[in-house]
Write a protein that binds this DNA or RNA. Sequence first.
DNA 1: CTGAAAGCGCTAACAC
DNA 2: GTGTTAGCGCTTTCAG
Lengths: 323, 323
Amino acid sequence: MARACGVHVSTVSRTFSAPHLVNPETRTRVLAEAERLGYRPNRAARALTTGRTHNIGLIVADIANPFFPPLIKAAQAHARLRDYHVFVADTDEDPRVEEELIQTFSKQVDGVLLCSPRLSNRAIDRLRRDVPFVVVNRPVRGLPAVLMDVADGARQAVGHLTSLGHRELALLTGPSGSWNSGLIQEAAERAAAEAGARLTALGPNAPTEQGGLLAAPEVLAAGATGVLAYNDLMAIGLLEGLEERGVAVPGDVSVVGFDDIMQGRLARPKLTTVAMPTVAAGRTAVDMLLQQVGAEEAGPSVTSLQTTLVVRESTAAPARLPR
Amino acid sequence: MARACGVHVSTVSRTFSAPHLVNPETRTRVLAEAERLGYRPNRAARALTTGRTHNIGLIVADIANPFFPPLIKAAQAHARLRDYHVFVADTDEDPRVEEELIQTFSKQVDGVLLCSPRLSNRAIDRLRRDVPFVVVNRPVRGLPAVLMDVADGARQAVGHLTSLGHRELALLTGPSGSWNSGLIQEAAERAAAEAGARLTALGPNAPTEQGGLLAAPEVLAAGATGVLAYNDLMAIGLLEGLEERGVAVPGDVSVVGFDDIMQGRLARPKLTTVAMPTVAAGRTAVDMLLQQVGAEEAGPSVTSLQTTLVVRESTAAPARLPR
DNA sequence: CTGAAAGCGCTAACAC
DNA sequence: GTGTTAGCGCTTTCAG
């Protein structure tokens, strides 16, 4: 390629990495030749000298969890505009796989987006020496993060339920490793107390339909008329469990989920839920990562994104107020 | 690292890429040192000399389409076991983005999995010079492919409907660029004819809920009592459209989809659908790609996977047989 | 079995 | 503005 247009390789190199340093004439000639030959600089080789791979890693617990695809998609599209590619990997909810993935990624990417990591703080602290991180959906001391304000979401959800007249609430908590579950619980308890309602925490539960399905008896046993589930999948499972037992939603019991996944709109009744700004989160995370690796100007090191309650059909006033 | 254990770099190299060529003692020493220092060979640099990146690209039209995540997940897990990483990219249904993605991937991966590509045969033929392909969900002359037998799926679906007593069928076709849509239509028409039923093809429609929703009036106008939709998303949209118009499913009209995505189980009534072997497809595609790039033994160059009808609640005998 | 040397495709610092 | 040189981290002959 270098000799095909009768110049030195470094001139070709400059044409692509610093076009302004090369004579416009030569430049167009090189570009034309590149076009003809279908030449494109080899990014891997480039990475060897520059130290920038122009790749970023994106690690999620489960691609098949409908919460993630919109986030992945947004991150990816956003990265592409900045000439970055995204490696997506799925840990299958296994912290060991997560660690292994981070290590194998470390030399191939400029940084890693860790979405809802299951790894311990200690492990993360150790691994951050290998590669820059941005954590999504969980605060880790000293690490840039993009958070979604689930605590406020929980407040909104509890507020909605109490203002409807519910006084006996239940919270279906998530997996014990989940940071958000704790935040939700704390905020929900406070909001319930302020409204003079009682809130029973039930869990931990698997963040799946199955998890919600299995929790149905406990919800009934707790005598709750309004329930908050850790995520939509769990809420949907609960809807099924309640239906099986002949409990009407929202007639007898109101249900609120988190995430606003598409499935919630499909469920009957349509699920009331706390919508998460996943698209914004994906974009912001990419921006923050690129800032950190010096490809962009620096911004805040922790971003918190708002959540919003979406009221649909699974919530209503309780049939009879608790005695 | 080389000098840390007092040997030459080439010995370190051999320890990782050809362990049997090195003295067991030295090997363990090197390995121990690597462990201590957290050293791992730089895959990008290795790729420079070997020509093998140990990465594969996976290109889909839309990550957020629930059909793909299980496939991606399976491909990824399968590749990982073979020491391969997967770059996932989303084209946003845009052929130009698809082409660009392939080109940027080409030097960074050993091969590309093209899932339901929107690119023209010509373009694919041109691009295959840049990088090995395996195409999923569409036959391309001269290229290895993994196909899912949608034609047979269509036959099963039509058979199910006709044996239930339906004689007036409608088919909601997919986007005009979709290969599968043509296959489905052909097979459905043949099967309908054989069973003495009439089948009206309606379309093209967007492969989304919206597409199905908009098609509801046409379905009714066609007087069909049994309808086949290009995919589950479209079928679900149709369910909604029908409900809005007070048409009972399956009382008045029966609906069958394709894909067996999770949403189908959530819809009310639960959707009867043709299940696609996405997990097997993801694995097979990875195997075929690795075979092609010489990392594994050669197998067949086109694999066809079976589909199976899953009967749920959206199909039943027609209320009254057509006159 | 191990060391030496060349080179993968590119960029960066320095001359000219 | 462009050529020269060195070197990124690794593998791979080829000697020894």
